[in-house]
């Protein structure tokens, strides 16, 4: 089986449990999902629902207990460290809640870091497009400590996009930002999907952030329980409130 056209990442009956025996905790209980190309997908759910675990498994940061994960045409499940490293380097982009920039590098060097690590050339045209889109043109020579939180997160966004990965995974990208900066970052992610056709998968628990997405997937107790297409913030909030009532089907 391979990811068919139009699908950037796919999970097939993915199980993930931690520990063993009585102490075993099941984080994902048979999740299957296709994440379409060029779409901005949000994964929502209460804490402990398994949304971060799902993202980590999809991104090759964590291995699955059972099932298969595909990114583009690559089967992630079963890859060794080297393969996973190359997958993350060439096919995946990351945006973290903590920004995670290297303090020794300038904004520009941080942005091109994934390319430098892989020994690839920077596509200057694309770089300019990305930098102008995130509005960092005049901040390129600054060090992270000289940038505000919002600017730092925009550097992280540019870094994720500059290598044109199959998927950009964003883990609570607005969690550490004020609402103004958060809105800027979300708008940028939305634009990337719509204008540049960049596939984006974002984990969040903020209904407002989720409302920027084309598709919102709701997780509870390691299972997908609901799905909304281009919802408003109110719809998302409403759905979250009623998640408690949803009975998770057990296999």
């Amino acid at each position: 089986m391979s990811a068919s056209d139009g699908v950037a990442a796919r999970a097939v009956d993915v199980w993930k449990s931690y520990g063993s025996g009585d102490a075993a905790v099941t984080a994902l209980a048979g999740v299957s999902v296709d994440l379409e190309k060029s779409r901005f997908t949000a994964i929502m759910g209460p804490s402990g629902s398994g949304k971060s675990t799902l993202m980590h498994c999809l991104a090759g940061l964590d291995d699955v207990t059972r099932g298969e994960v595909w990114v583009g045409g690559t089967k992630v499940t079963g890859l060794k460290d080297r393969g996973l490293t190359e997958l993350r380097r060439d096919k995946v982009g990351f945006i973290f809640q903590q920004f995670n920039l290297l303090p020794t590098l300038t904004a520009e060097e941080n942005i091109t870091l994934p390319l430098a690590i892989g020994g690839r050339k920077v596509d200057r045209e694309w770089f300019d497009v990305v930098v102008d889109t995130v509005g960092l043109r005049d901040r390129l020579t600054h060090r992270p400590t000289q940038l505000s939180g919002g600017q730092q997160q925009r550097v992280a966004c540019a870094r994720a996009l500059v290598s044109r990965p199959e998927v950009v995974f964003a883990d609570e990208p607005t969690g550490n930002l004020d609402s103004q900066s958060g809105a800027e970052v979300l708008a940028f992610l939305q634009r990337s999907a719509r204008e540049f056709g960049q596939t984006i998968v974002m984990v969040t628990h903020d209904p407002n952030a989720a409302s920027y997405a084309d598709r919102v997937i709701f997780l509870k107790d390691g299972n997908i329980v609901r799905e909304l297409l281009s919802p408003s913030a109110e719809e998302v909030l409403d759905t979250m409130k009623h998640l408690d009532g949803v009975v998770v089907p057990h296999v």
């Binding site: 940061l61 080297r82 380097r89 690590i117």
Partner: peptide, 16 residues
Amino acid sequence: TRELGLLRAIGMRRAQ
């Protein structure tokens, strides 16, 4: 530690 985690996350190989 966190920086190293990041570098690994964005594709730095162990040898690097």
